[in-house]
Amino acid sequence: MRRADREVTDPVKIREIITSCDCCRLGLCDGERAYVVPLDFGLEERDGRYAFYFHGAKEGRKMDLIRRTGWAAFEMDTGHEWVISERAQETTSRFRCVMGGGPVTVLETAEEKRAGLLAILAHVTGREQWDIGAAALESTQVFRLDAEELTCKVHP
């Protein structure tokens, strides 16, 4: 990270920033072009490492790229605020963001899918108890990104 003075390394602060985000942008490689898609997400933290859960249709460009490459980058941000100055070079914005990447696993079993969907629902709604029927599990693709790389930045 170029601006070390803006880097966040405190695990408690990183988790607070992640949980305050409501969208995660997944970046996938499509040949020589990038493909970025905004997604709802859920998370799980184990031993200071994050796993992010996503869901979507079973077919389409996103799933084709995930199956082809098995890896994705991600970015999430929150706390946007413009700081306007009379001088253009002093106008800036405040934000908090988390970025990284890692391998992506397509979840296959009903148990894995249910756990992923419950993580997403818990993050999005704050509620942990949900009844997820077999038809929903069958028709929905759930996948997990295990963040091998993760950086956090705050521009106060």
Rank of each mutant, 00 (worst) to 15 (best):
M1L: 09
M1Y: 09
M1A: 14
R6F: 12
R6P: 02
V8K: 07
T9D: 09
D10N: 15
V12N: 11
K13A: 14
I14H: 04
T19Q: 15
T19M: 12
T19H: 09
D22T: 15
C24T: 10
C24R: 12
L28S: 03
L28F: 08
L28Q: 03
G31H: 11
R33M: 12
A34N: 04
Y35E: 01
V36S: 11
V37K: 06
P38S: 09
P38H: 12
L39S: 11
F41A: 00
L43K: 03
E44S: 13
E45V: 14
E45A: 03
R46P: 00
G48P: 01
R49I: 01
R49P: 00
A51Y: 05
F52N: 02
F52M: 14
K58P: 00
E59L: 06
R61C: 00
M63F: 05
D64T: 13
R67C: 07
R68Y: 05
G70P: 02
E75P: 00
M76E: 01
D77V: 03
T78Y: 05
H80P: 00
E81I: 03
E81S: 14
W82M: 15
V83F: 05
S85Q: 07
E86T: 10
A88V: 14
A88F: 12
Q89E: 13
C97V: 07
V98M: 01
V98G: 01
M99H: 08
G101E: 02
P103Y: 12
T105A: 14
L107T: 10
A110S: 13
E112Q: 15
K113F: 02
A119P: 11
A119Y: 04
I120V: 13
L121I: 08
A122Y: 07
G126C: 04
G126F: 08
G126T: 06
E128F: 02
W130M: 02
I132V: 13
A135P: 00
E138W: 08
E138S: 13
Q141W: 04
Q141R: 13
R144C: 15
R144E: 11
L145K: 10
L150V: 11
V154S: 09
V154G: 03
H155W: 08
H155K: 15
